[in-house]
Write a protein that binds this DNA or RNA. Structure first.
Lengths: 134, 134
DNA sequence: CCCAAAAAGACTATTTATGTCCTGTTTAGT
DNA sequence: ACTAAACAGGACATAAATAGTCTTTTTGGG
């Protein structure tokens, strides 16, 4: 339970590597992939997701590549993880979509809410600056 | 991320139902399954796992069924969840099997340890007594 | 012996995870 | 304009995990 998938692991490795570079230096995907030991095509998908929500900025064409979308201290681990793994939901109940039809008698519900809150809280306090050792 | 599977959900429902019964009353699997709306054959597998580690006690043959293995206040939600979902491991690193070959530079590692500790802590403090509303 | 009930193992279907591949689009440089 | 470099996006492939089902065996009671 609670495990990060490979995608999430790769995502962290990749963006932490990028965060450790100079902010004005455009990084090639191929370089990042080689450096963090992740299949390039797979990492491409991950960085596309990052790009869509602005965690990274991409430049196409010759001389293109990726740079961090914001300063490393402004990007949290929570954002990175949720970008590729989806929201942190320990149980379907927590989605609030009324799926927990037995809510009235469901004493478990508040426990999951607590778990969710705690985990998000931890991940939110860690930034790429911390992770990149800056 | 962090989601409980159906198996885990069913497991909780089933054992909470059992906890809410009289402790001397042997419950039929078929009754439990019907009450908590879970396929009986699937629930059977789950209760077998419970039985192996003593969370429930089973009686075979006529008049058989299940009873809780210990008083409800002595069984934690953590035990129930880990019984069917496996240990709570937010990242492979935490297993301590030396899989995190990049440990030296891995600032992410301690974060996962913290997550693991926090979550286990929350789930450990909730007992079946609480969940069954006793 | 016969029946009721759980245990155990084999089997199946669906979904998710983990990638790969191909084609398109953008951009820099000549 | 042409070409090569580099990301974008969609379709596809394979393997593993999830979510069950089915059948047979074991056990206990009457």
């Amino acid at each position: 339970m609670m495990d990060l998938t490979r995608k999430g692991e790769y995502a962290i490795r990749g963006i932490v590597y990028l965060a450790a570079r100079q902010s004005d230096q455009v990084c090639l995907l191929s370089d990042i992939a080689a450096a963090v030991d992740v299949p390039q095509t797979f990492l491409a998908k991950i960085f596309q997701q990052f790009s869509k929500i602005g965690l990274v900025r991409s430049y196409r064409g010759t001389g293109g590549g990726f740079v961090l979308g914001r300063p490393p201290e402004k990007i949290t681990l929570l954002e990175v993880v949720e970008a590729v793994e989806g929201p942190i939901i320990p149980n379907r109940c927590v989605t609030g979509e009324g799926e927990c039809s037995r809510t009235s008698s469901c004493n478990v519900h508040p426990v999951w809410v607590k778990v969710q809150t705690q985990v998000k809280d931890i991940l939110e306090k860690v930034t790429l600056k911390d992770l990149a050792g800056l």
